[in-house]
Amino acid sequence: MHTPVTLLASAAIGVLSLSFWPAKAPGNLPQLVRLDPAPFSHRLDGDWQRDGGQVNAPIRSVQIPAPVEIMEMPVSTGDWMACVRDGACIAPGGPTDRPELPVTGVSWMDANAYAAWMTKRTGDTWRLPSDVEWAHAAAELFRDDALGVEADPANPAVLWLAEYNAEATRSRNLDREVRPVGSLNVNSLGVRDIGGAVWEWTSTCLRRVDVDGTGAVLREGETCGIYIAEGLHRAAINDFVRDPKSGGCSVGVPPANLGFRLVREAI
């Protein structure tokens, strides 16, 4: 915020909200929820396979490596347009005339430009959350997207048909309405808007993990350029994609919209 008028306005808000925000925050900051490392049970991200066949990712006890503060709500269109006005972000693919809606139609690269702008603006480090950080914040609203069907080595179509039917069920129940930020739901941590019509980018690259019959990891490789987007199910999306509705493959249900929220590294 560079104009005196805005500074004054920010200062006023800062005074009102002192109890929520650290004193050094210059104001106009999003509301944040602090996450402290603590173990929780999590279905790992990525494509896991055994003997060339797809298997469910294992459930492991994980914890975030260090405390972070995560945005209570996704970045709104109003927030985003401020970055656009500052010349640090480009116009989103989604609607721009409803500032209260979460911003949609942003690529992974767009989201990182916003994080860089926030970092520059505040002096703190802002970035996309990892899959584990996002899952921690989603808490009981995180959806286990495992298929629950193991590959049949003799008939790969068993898995394809099961996946297809699971996706058909998902899209049947899909709520396609993008609602104003903060209005969808709230979880036990006070984090809002988990799992609606907007999928959220993470900093986690798509990984492929080969395991043996005992579950031991034989090989693990990452494809950075494809990132995990979190929502009703996890999706792996190319970093330049803004509209996942097109750009899907020949079968399968893509995310409805792409948005994000950021974490601030704890001070």
């Binding site: 179509a157 048909l161 020949s250």
Partner: peptide
């Protein structure tokens, strides 16, 4: 001749 998901496009 094979099971699976076919796309007719």
């Amino acid at each position: 001749e094979q099971p699976g998901i076919y796309a007719y496009v």
